[in-house]
Design a protein around this nucleic acid. Structure first.
Lengths: 173, 173
DNA sequence: GCGCTTGAGTTGCGAAATGCAACGAAGACC
DNA sequence: GGTCTTCGTTGCATTTCGCAACTCAAGCGC
């Protein structure tokens, strides 16, 4: 955990939340555990058999996920031997990242059709590909993108709104 | 590399491309290197200084990314000491996954505003959050989703189209 | 040519993470 | 009380990571 964290907050003057995400999810089994959790796995033994992961590692990974607030640990009332691991909202919000990874693997791997498939509950159609979108929701490709430093963004906040606001006082003077 | 790969292709009868993606990108520095690459870093020494990563690890990670077809290695013609590492299309298509992770880190980390920011080249507005969408592009939340086995999907292909097709013969009879 | 620098790695070795198998301990079950 | 479950922990071998020093080919100044 040493090196990576040290570098977390400065990348030649850049700032990035990516290392922060990686500190929580960058370890070998984290995403696999997350996936199992999304598939309804809740207990230690279930994870262990499903993933074929060493028990000590699983124990460690689950603790870490709990520490990071990605999963919640709860001793069950009706059988106090059992512990239930449940995704928190913070954990659930990793779904787009996980699905993006999975779709990438599907596209570029050896044509493995992943199962189970995530479908829209309304019509049971598989979901679409995870994409980047402009602020108005329009899908946007890599070539239509620029990396900008925060300082060189539109004067402050959303350009259009901002223009309206700043125009008002001038008119009032 | 042992355990994880063994389990890659069967998760109690499930199939998943996620482990495949993780095999390529699941190692400690892979995403950080990818991020640097997206930010215009191309040479060994640049990666090394930018990331403060050990040279042997960097060497190893770059080779592996090249092996996986995520980056391309090219010895430069005008100075044959220099090697240029360039993202391939396969690498570029990891952008949604990377941004999803980064946005998650931004949201749940200690309010770190990431820089540089990805903006729409057209209006220089920051891009929107990476989301899951239904097949028709409508944004879809976790609670509106179901996990379905491939076998229990709508009879085959798209439901609506399928319904039309299957209705026709019946009417014809 | 000859020393000097630069770019891209490699090597050796200690520290940390991972994997395996066996063990422990509390709670349920009869 | 004895046994079975569930969730871990412990000890030890293997693998990966991290650091610093070293190699080695290619350009550069003269």
């Amino acid at each position: 955990m040493g090196k990576l964290r040290e570098v977390l907050n400065d990348l030649h003057g850049d700032n990035c939340a990516l290392p922060l995400a990686l500190e929580a999810m960058g370890e070998r089994w984290s995403f696999m555990i997350l996936r199992a959790a999304f598939n309804g796995v809740h207990h230690f033994e279930e994870f262990q058999q499903e993933l074929n992961i060493a028990r000590n590692i699983l124990s460690n990974r689950l603790s870490r996920l709990v520490d990071h607030g990605i999963m919640a640990r709860e001793v069950m009332a009706e059988d106090r031997r059992k512990v239930r691991y449940q995704l928190t909202e913070k954990g659930i919000e990793l779904l787009p990242a996980m699905i993006a990874l999975r779709q990438w693997g599907e596209k570029w791997g050896a044509g493995v059709p992943s199962t189970p498939v995530l479908v829209d509950a309304r019509d049971e159609q598989p979901i679409g590909p995870v994409t980047l979108t402009a602020h108005d929701g329009r899908v946007i490709g890599y070539k239509e993108l620029l990396w900008k430093h925060r300082s060189e963004l539109q004067p402050l906040g959303q350009a259009r709104v901002r223009a309206d606001i700043s125009a008002a006082p001038v008119a009032a003077e």
